[in-house]
Design a protein around this nucleic acid. Structure first.
Lengths: 192, 192
DNA sequence: CAGAATGGCTAGCAGTGCTAGAGTTCGGTC
DNA sequence: GACCGAACTCTAGCACTGCTAGCCATTCTG
């Protein structure tokens, strides 16, 4: 039994190495640079090994996305914990979210933009992401008014997502970034 | 002179055929299906001909995006023209925008999502898109309050963009789509 | 110690965007 | 009307992609 256990442990370790290599490579050179050949070279195994762990390249990216979700969730949670009053909590989360997207664009892409079969709003949503969403919802609760909290949260979240993606693609003036965030927060934290 | 004129005319016509073929193929089967070989077959020329018109595949997609911008701008303008009061104008534009993205996802992708060198907020923004943005800004003017109008418009636009992209990627509950749009419009059309 | 099975490797497939250079067609000139 | 030159298109191929079949070595089992 012990031998088999060791093997499974090694296998799991290699799987983590694949995910880490994919993440690092993507963050360093973008997702285009993440090819199965380079990935295989990075972990010092041959290409087919990747396919014994993942169904394909998309699955690897999905795994990176799941892992990255935890980081994003942690940032959001920390921002919320650091806030003192409700409105500041919303602003803090918005800033943390935007900074995450700015600091780790490849990771953010894997989580939200890539045509990956990570269907959210359903069972296979990464647990961590669901938690982050729930945190955001709690933070927004005082400001939802008559609107359904989940729907309200989705809308605010979409605003954040739109801001960071459009800016990253060069569709928005970078120097106005913080002001746009402030406007979004302001508009979603008005009472009555 | 006349012969040369005819040639240039035919060349221009072929260029339009390339763009049209790319757009149709993308709308029918997605951008993954748009390969230079299929495109060449579609216009009944060989591959290298494409490269005598465009620098590469990205340039073709950019051309499709520019063309599509006109359609989007027309939809937005029509929605604004059909509205009677200011708030309804905003709601109408939001709906028109979302419907465009829903009806023509491939085109919308080309305009906003694809890693295309269509740097907006700069010179090479398609004229039509700039016009659409200006229309949106005028529609929002009564609600901008103390905020800079352009920045305010960018923020609202980002909200729309986030809503349509996250929903298309399956990150939002489809059945709540209209309610989210309503929340966004509501939050950006409050006075005082 | 023989046989089976696990698992990684080499080699290759079908496809991608893009390009060099051959070949053909066409307009202009004597 | 015949020829030459230039413009243009095509064939063929490169280097790369994701992915897989089948061989081979190593390890476990009886």
């Amino acid at each position: 039994m012990s031998i088999q256990a060791r093997r499974e442990r090694e296998r799991a370790e290699r799987e983590r190495a694949i995910i880490a290599a994919a993440r690092d490579l993507a963050e360093a050179e973008g997702w285009d640079a993440v090819t199965t050949r380079r990935l295989a070279a990075e972990i010092e195994y041959s290409q087919p090994v990747l396919y014994s762990h993942f169904k394909g390249k998309d699955a690897i990216m999905a795994a990176v996305a799941v892992e990255g979700s935890a980081d994003l969730a942690a940032d959001v949670a920390a921002a919320r914990a650091a806030a003192t009053d409700p409105r500041q909590a919303v602003a803090g989360i918005a800033t943390a979210y935007a900074e995450f997207a700015d600091r780790r664009p490849a990771l953010y892409d894997a989580i939200f933009n890539l045509p990956v079969a990570l269907s959210f709003a359903s069972q296979d949503t990464p647990v961590e992401l669901a938690r982050a969403f729930a945190e955001l919802a709690e933070t927004l609760r005082p400001f939802a008014g008559d609107d359904d909290l989940e729907t309200f949260t989705e809308t605010f979240w979409s605003g954040l997502h739109g801001l960071v993606t459009l800016m990253r693609n060069g569709r928005l003036r970078r120097e106005e970034h913080e002001r746009r965030l402030a406007i979004l927060v302001d508009r979603f934290t008005r009472l009555g």
